[in-house]
């Protein structure tokens, strides 16, 4: 989670943008829901307010339900979860009314298949980057991953990212 945030914040910084974000430490880290906020551009407060986020990345379907509240009208939601349409009907209507596009991708399975379950977040990022509305492009994000991943995980992270980008199972 923190690494996923770092991928975007480091990319933004490398391209000359200001970044400001917020993360969770302490008691809340012991198994509770962990939310990381990131704002790119000129801001004062690190917190993203409800109904204002452009993008939500959720690493579990339950977290997607909890994270949706942050999305603005027309926002994007990427969810790591099993294939198939399993959204709650009412939530699905809410997303349709507010032009929120949700993409579900089995990032955990993909990462497991390429033998690096810990790289699931990178697979989801790769998948998200295949959607043209995302900020930054494939090469910019890939360059950041190459730069900031410790060498022993680099190959696995890049492989997961590319698998996601090519939407490969």
């Amino acid at each position: 989670m923190l690494f996923a945030t770092k991928v975007f914040s480091e990319t933004a910084l490398a391209l000359g943008h200001d970044v400001l974000g917020s993360e969770t430490h302490g008691m809340s880290q012991r198994g509770g829901s962990v939310i990381s906020h990131l704002k790119i551009g000129s801001y004062e407060s690190p917190l993203v307010r409800h109904a204002t986020a452009d993008v939500v990345l959720a690493f579990h379907p339950h977290e997607a339900y909890r994270g949706l509240v942050f999305l603005r009208r027309g926002g994007l939601c990427f969810v790591s979860g099993p294939d198939g349409d399993s959204w709650d009907r009412g939530v699905k209507d809410y997303m349709a009314e507010n032009a929120i596009a949700a993409y579900v991708y089995p990032a955990d399975d993909v990462a497991l298949e390429i033998g690096s379950p810990r790289s699931a977040n990178l697979a989801l990022i790769g998948y998200a980057m295949s959607v043209p509305e995302m900020p930054f492009d494939h090469d910019q994000i890939r360059a950041t991953i190459e730069r900031i991943t410790p060498s022993r995980f680099r190959k696995a992270n890049l492989e997961a990212f590319e698998a996601g980008y090519r939407r490969k199972r």
Binding site: S9, L13, D18, L20, S22, T24, L47
Partner: peptide
């Protein structure tokens, strides 16, 4: 806490 655990360049 929102300063201590914020991230900024």
């Amino acid at each position: 806490i929102r300063v201590s655990h914020a991230r900024q360049n």
